[in-house]
């Protein structure tokens, strides 16, 4: 067939038939900032998983002869310790590598627990409303009134330090965001006629929520999950900075920053480098999250 037409051809049916997920991945590839975010996150994940293979030293191995060693590129630095050492002579690179495990696991699991609790409660409250909705929504309002960090400090003071306790303390309040999102989305979806059609066919409420409504709101959930993981990582770092996070012997970025703040003038790298580790991870997460939000925003989908 000769190519005569200059008018734009309609999209081939294959592309139009692509599932919404495939489309999201394709669009992500077309948004450089989101792609950069995804690559940064992937790098951090690889580092966290492969920490024992990548770290040149044990994160808790002290070498008091090599205290306050600057990074390799600075005057007085050595290639033995690429990012220098802290006041106890511990290798900073190894500690930052191991520290990613605390940050990522706390961020991931506190959000996963909140997602699970918040979505279940939000679905029930949104679909059935009534007394359940009134009670849970008031509890959520009550928790919302307390500043997050203050609440987490109280919770950690009661629970004591530890990764699991961090996850619990952060989840107690974090489910509210997911609860509110899902409750609102389900209230707006359930008045649509496709839900009424499902009711006409005699499908029970829980089946309608999971099989009919959830696929229509999952995109906004994905965006919220991504952005909240970044926030949780900052919360974890803040608690660790205040000494309320993990036990002192476990390397965590927040406590590393705290440890270096007395010597910030003379040994800037002890605080600054873990800070940069947090900065880039959260930046990557936010880049990905905001791109996902742009892709899935129905107002930007008008061309469909």
């Amino acid at each position: 067939m000769q190519e005569l037409s200059t008018a734009p051809l309609p999209a081939p049916p294959r592309a139009a038939n692509a599932s919404p997920w495939k489309k999201t991945v394709q669009e992500l590839a077309a948004h450089p900032s989101g792609l950069i975010g995804a690559i940064i996150i992937l790098l951090y994940l690889v580092v966290a998983v492969a920490a024992p293979l990548l770290a040149p030293y044990s994160p808790t191995e002290m070498d008091l002869r090599a205290r306050f060693l600057p990074p390799a590129w600075a005057a007085g630095g050595s290639l033995q310790h690429l990012l220098g050492t802290d006041q106890l002579g511990q290798d900073l690179l190894s500690r930052i590598i191991y520290g990613s495990r605390v940050s990522i696991s706390v961020g991931l699991f506190s959000v996963l627990i909140s997602l699970l609790v918040g979505s279940v409660l939000g679905s029930i409250a949104g679909y059935y409303q009534g007394w359940f909705d009134r009670i849970v929504s008031r509890v959520a309002d009550l928790l919302m009134a307390v500043p997050y960090l203050l609440f987490a400090i109280f919770a950690m003071a009661i629970l004591g330090p530890g990764v699991l306790n961090l996850i619990i303390a952060l989840s107690i309040k974090a489910w509210i965001e997911f609860y509110r999102l899902l409750r609102g989305e389900i209230i707006s979806e359930k008045t649509k006629e496709y839900v009424e059609a499902a009711r006409m066919l005699g499908r029970p409420g829980p089946v309608i929520i999971v099989a009919e409504v959830l696929p229509n709101v999952i995109h906004s959930l994905v965006v919220l999950v991504t952005l909240r993981i970044g926030y949780m990582i900052i919360m974890e770092a803040s608690l660790s900075f205040l000494g309320l996070g993990v036990p002192p012997e476990v390397p965590a970025w927040g406590s590393m920053i705290a440890a270096g703040r007395d010597t910030l003038i003379n040994a800037w790298w002890i605080s600054t480098l873990p800070g940069l580790a947090i900065l880039f991870l959260v930046l990557g997460i936010n880049l990905l999250g905001e791109t996902l939000r742009d892709i899935t925003d129905p107002r930007l989908q008008a061309r469909e």
Binding site: K192, E193, Y194, E196, A197, A198, M200, L201, G202, P215
Partner: peptide, 30 residues
């Protein structure tokens, strides 16, 4: 249950009466 099957409804808005995330096959399967 049998009343549910004997009585059905056709809706006004053909844009919101079909679940946008489901194919025709999935819609008719239920």
């Amino acid at each position: 249950k049998s009343f549910r099957q004997k009585v059905q409804m056709i809706f006004q808005n053909p844009y919101s009466s079909l679940n946008p995330r489901k194919t025709v096959r999935q819609i008719l399967d239920v």
